[in-house]
Amino acid sequence: MKKSALILLMIIVTLSSLFAFSACDKDKDTANGKTVTDLLGREVTVPEKINRVICIGAGSLRLYTYVGDLSKLVGVEDVDKDGTGVGATLSIRPYKMVNKDLFNSLPSCGMGGPQGSADAEKILSLNPDIVFSLYTSDKAAMDDLQQKIGKPVVVLSYGKTEAFDENVKKSIALLGDIMNRKERANELLSFISDTENYLSSIGEGIDKSKKATVYLGCQSNYGTHGIESSSANYSIFDVSKIRNVLDEYVGKNGETFKGYQKSVDWEILKSLNPQRIVLDAGGLYILKTQLQDKDKSEILNSLSAFQNGEIYLQMPYNAYYTNLETAYADAYFDAWVQYHDIAPEKLNFDYVEKAREIYTLFLGKDCYDDVAAQMYGGFQKLDISKI
């Protein structure tokens, strides 16, 4: 009976919304709202006054926590609540860690998770004024959801190049515009711009031959992985012009690496012989098992970075999309890894203190110690014999 009533309500709201949205098309800036363009290029009319917010899809709630008023949230997907079993295998998510009491107290607006999809009935039952989504790049699907619930659905995006992608900046700016929190959005955007400019300046004028070759290992990407998981054209390295050894690989037939590599061939890794290795802490437990394998251990221990103790630990940021604050902290730490011995005068930061500053800026709380406690002690030069 309850479900039938809910379905009837959906039909009524859908019919009324058709008139509302068609009316809005005639005047993009009405007394009741304004029309914005989301990250799919959809024009969406949003109310001027928003009191009830729902965020759905991978990373949507995270972006909102950076910019929006959390008191306006009226529901959270199960993936961001404790004890639901959804997302239990995902790596650390600081936005969830900091806001767990609030998230756990709110009703469910759907399951969420990597295999999740929008739950129109649950969303409708919570009567949001607006829905921010990161579920799909399909315009028709988002238009269909918007029609079903009779509320504006605005799509955000992280883009394809992680923390420094233009779509990240556009999403933050869009949230600030819609939620009337432009000052907050601009604060974050200024930090991102200043970070890019500063880190880029570190590598200026330093000849590549003076830089140690660096390899990223155990990169988290749709789960945790071993040391063979890495990336060429890695934006967190590129921002400070770190010498990524994968960028320099050319195979016998001219093949090269582009973007994320789930499994770099072990013999290729041996031939690259990186002088320094940065490990994603999320996959360190897998590296432990690889070091117990005779053949893999032999290759790893033959590498210059292993022989000379040049192994470093960065924090995992790929978990239900990009944890931006951790990615920016990693960018500072990785710059230190590359330049601490050849250009120390350009490094005007302590990487742990910088991480504290970044967590506080984005999340309103310094949660670095909590992250470090779950990730082998945090940023460090790693003694591989003790892992």
Rank of each mutant, 00 (worst) to 15 (best):
A88K: 14
Y328K: 02
C109Y: 06
N186K: 13
D383K: 12
D129P: 00
G282T: 05
A173C: 10
S385T: 15
T256G: 00
F132W: 06
E162C: 06
L15D: 09
E310Y: 00
I227R: 04
Q275I: 07
I277M: 08
A120I: 12
A20S: 14
P114A: 14
S171R: 01
Q374A: 14
K49A: 12
I358A: 02
E187A: 05
K258W: 10
Q338D: 06
E166S: 14
S71N: 15
Y317Q: 05
S71G: 15
A5Q: 14
Q374V: 11
D247V: 01
Y95I: 01
P114Y: 13
G159P: 04
V337D: 05
G254H: 11
S4G: 08
V36P: 05
L63G: 01
Y328A: 00
E48K: 14
G283N: 07
L70Y: 02
I178F: 04
D238K: 06
D369K: 11
F19M: 12
T360K: 14
F132V: 03
A20V: 13
D295F: 11
G378I: 07
S105L: 12
N323D: 12
H225E: 05
V352L: 09
L8N: 12
K262F: 10
Y260M: 08
I50W: 10
G378L: 09
A5K: 12
D295E: 15
A372H: 04
K81C: 08
Q261G: 00
M1C: 10
I56W: 02
K49S: 13
A185N: 01
E162M: 07
P47D: 09
G110P: 03
D207C: 00
K208V: 06
T30E: 10
D29M: 10
T37V: 15
V98K: 02
G87S: 09
E267M: 14
G282S: 09
S385D: 15
A319R: 03
S71E: 15
A232H: 00
V131K: 01
L9M: 11
D27F: 08
E267V: 07
K2H: 11
Q380G: 01
T256E: 14
S240C: 11
A232I: 02
S4F: 12
G87N: 04
S105I: 11
E255Y: 11
I54A: 05
L189T: 09
G283P: 07
V36C: 05
Y317I: 06
Y234G: 05
P316A: 02
I311C: 09
L272W: 09
D280A: 03
S193C: 08
L189V: 09
A163G: 11
V155K: 03
S133R: 02
G364R: 07
K258M: 09
A373L: 13
A373W: 02
